[in-house]
Design a protein around this nucleic acid. Structure first.
Lengths: 294, 294
DNA sequence: CATGACGATCTACAATATCGATTGAGAGTG
DNA sequence: CACTCTCAATCGATATTGTAGATCGTCATG
């Protein structure tokens, strides 16, 4: 049907090396084989590509244009084979990673950037979820990895610990709770609690206070905005609010039960299906780079 | 070396028709031939492309990505063949046209736009020259066509007449010649004549007045600007100055020897080498559209 | 369990690519 | 002008590759 890549390659060699004989040498073939291939290509395309009238062969105008097109074709084929070789070498075709939105995106993105610079052929899909939604998605999408605050352990899951993240119970400086000390659970229940919406159907975070009024926000950016507006109180990872706490825009609630807690995020993957090279490399990068750094 | 287009085509057929047997039917081959091609492709790429464990074959993740790449390859090859067919059908690869700058670009550009819309594969090169420079370039570049005011006839050149263009001897309204009537050649010689620079080494236009002071401009746009600034007098094609003449910004010199002349532009091409389809089509478009229309 | 569709596999055969040698046509040299 | 050298087309023989046709095991379906 179409043109033959070998034939195009032969033509290319003839033109680049300036002759059938030299092309044949370069291709480790005999001259007649090259002649044959070029003839075939001309027959396939139905256009004379080389002008044989002179002592040296020369491209016809049409040949020039078609060869340029053909070279693009060869390049693309080259790319396809190198892509295939990478797959053969153990690079997986797809890698799905679920990330808990409470964790800083920056380190993850930097790791992905490094992967891109290393030209891995893998299509990486990164999804951000919250709370129980992380594991929910991990299982629903049959994802390869998740970076999560907490998860329900299972024998087929393996976890690596990442750097600790601290959470702070925050409130706007204008909020009634801001200036109070010795805040009790009862006090908290009189105010609105802000939480990030769980994308699964599971219950709430263990650190929630179980009051009457809870507003669910769609992410930590929205939650922070709501906090600053004085809508209510709520837990925030410190790295997201450290500047506001310094400036005093947000205040740490002086809650008697403790206004801080730390947790260790975990990089989780399956032990059933071994991870491909991209997955392993991404793991290295995430464990190496300090995930919780600002 | 690289992947084989036929094999890619076979894989594509298998996936699109959902099975080796159907693919074979669609390709007018027997099933084993398709099997062979797909096996070959997998061997060439070194990656399993189809998952044969199930009842129905299914693409592996790597196969999915590589097939997508392969389809692009097929499409490109398709384009290459169709391009070649057009060349085989008599569309030339290149077409060089020299245009006299005194003529309106618009019709020519419209014709070229039509050609582009008709998806001719030809690379068209349009060059604008002036006076003797047109034919000079035509010969130097071995161009295919020229649209010219005058040319030195030769037996191997054939010309078709286009629509007449009128030239007017113009001057700025602020110029001393603007309000005079019965202007003589002697009067003209006292002022600066504006002319467009000939890009060849040949002499001047036959319509020039042969005065002492002549300013040469690089094109009609520049000439018009110089005229409006009152730098001197000079011939302009009417279509370029009709608005200025109406408004009175420019005035027609009331020259006793005649302040207007008309000429018939000609579309010239060689009779020695027959024109290709693009050349013929462009000729049709230029002769059909009224070249001299505003 | 019988049936039918599917895809792998094998063999024989056909088509296609390569080899090695020859031919004739420029181009360079004395 | 004769000689040689390089170039590319051409040809017959051979090696490689692709296809047809038949068979086999597997899996889904009724």
């Amino acid at each position: 049907m179409g043109p033959d890549l070998d034939a195009i390659n032969a033509l290319d060699a003839v033109v680049r090396h300036g002759g059938f004989a030299r092309a044949a040498a370069a291709l480790h073939r005999v001259q007649s084989a090259v002649s044959y291939q070029v003839d075939k290509l001309e027959a396939q395309l139905g256009v004379p590509l080389l002008d044989r009238t002179g002592y040296r062969v020369q491209l016809t105008p049409a040949g020039e244009i078609l060869l340029a097109e053909g070279r693009r074709l060869l390049g693309q084929a080259q790319r396809m084979t190198s892509m295939a070789r990478q797959f053969a070498d153990g690079w997986e075709a797809r890698l799905t990673v679920i990330l808990d939105g409470i964790l800083p995106l920056e380190t993850t993105l930097r790791a992905l950037k490094t992967l891109a610079e290393e030209k891995v052929p893998t299509r990486i899909q990164l999804k951000v979820e919250y709370l129980g939604g992380v594991q929910f998605r991990f299982e629903k999408d049959n994802a390869d990895m998740m970076v999560v605050k907490d998860y329900l352990g299972r024998p087929d899951l393996e976890a690596h610990q990442l750097e600790e993240v601290e959470c702070v119970l925050c409130v706007s400086s204008g909020h009634p709770l801001a200036d109070r000390s010795g805040v009790t659970l009862r006090d908290l229940h009189e105010h609105v609690e802000l939480s990030v919406q769980d994308s699964s159907e599971r219950g709430d975070d263990e650190h929630m206070f179980g009051g009457e009024r809870v507003f669910y926000l769609s992410g930590f950016a929205a939650k922070k905005q709501a906090l600053r507006m004085g809508l209510g109180f709520g837990w925030m990872p410190r790295y997201l609010v450290s500047r506001e706490l310094q400036r005093g825009t947000l205040r740490e609630v002086r809650y008697a039960g403790g206004s801080r807690y730390r947790f260790t995020p975990k990089l989780v993957h399956r032990t059933t299906t071994p991870m491909g090279r991209t997955g392993r490399r991404l793991g290295e990068l995430l464990l190496g780079g300090s995930l919780a750094a600002h």
